[in-house]
Nucleic acid binder design. Sequence first.
DNA 1: ATCCGGTTGTTAGCATACTAACATTATCGA
DNA 2: TCGATAATGTTAGTATGCTAACAACCGGAT
Lengths: 151, 151
Amino acid sequence: MNQNDDTTVGERAAYVLDDQVGFLLRLASQRHTAIFQDSPAFDLTPTQLAAIVRLAQIGECSQNELGRQTAMDVATIKGVVDRLRQKGLVVTRPDPLDRRRTLLSLSPGTEAMIADIHEFGLQISRKTLAPLTAAERTTFLRLLRKLSEVG
Amino acid sequence: MNQNDDTTVGERAAYVLDDQVGFLLRLASQRHTAIFQDSPAFDLTPTQLAAIVRLAQIGECSQNELGRQTAMDVATIKGVVDRLRQKGLVVTRPDPLDRRRTLLSLSPGTEAMIADIHEFGLQISRKTLAPLTAAERTTFLRLLRKLSEVG
DNA sequence: ATCCGGTTGTTAGCATACTAACATTATCGA
DNA sequence: TCGATAATGTTAGTATGCTAACAACCGGAT
């Protein structure tokens, strides 16, 4: 019987930190972020790129709506949008139909860069998944999606 | 031909944010953290639990060493250790052999809780992986480890 | 023995990510 | 129409996670 067997009947599973999904998710996220930041094509963080790409996809929308579409709470999306506005990548105008809202859209310069930003994002994904074979990449993304879509 | 086909010869792969590994890793991490925080067994964050479990595993060590063993840079591990000391979970003493170092160890009370902390960690991992079948869980952890272990 | 490079821990600054509380504005129901 | 409810955006506070700079200290090489 393997000394690392964690399925022995009647015995409690051993807690090995390096085998826990939360710990491994943190490591994988760290590696992805490092790959992203080491590819200096744009002065963007992964989160900022996600916001820009989503805004390009869905078009003009409110700040909270963009937050929901990118899985950022209201406090986080505010900071992200503030920094994107400061860089001139996103512009705003008041919503004429709802005085609570500010509508966000990409600046013309950003609009023109969208294709390059997409290409950059694909490169990052390829580098991140490089340790896996093509079949493994497909499987991994499918399972990761199952873990993310719940709730 | 499928309209979402991203492998058509001669065409550039489409950039779909929801299919990018970085975005999905962020979603999965968010879900894991939410599961963790909604299980109020201990007043700990995932990072703090990792530090405690690792310290229990490797025994008394320096702050930077614990950081390396838990994938936290020197600034991050400092904050984590400060908070664990403030809660009385970790105690320190100067290293008699190296005046730069402070040696960390678990407080006796924490030592006594380690088995419960392990059990709690296993519950969190089970809940996080619940959307997958047993076979999928094994595969997912194997691939996630491959993505994390790369230098 | 001294100098030099490396290690340890601290600090400051920035960027997510979360909760909670708040004022303002919309909307729906009675 | 009015009153309760909900949505929007802001602010404050806390906790990672990163870089960069710094002082103090250790070890080895000359």
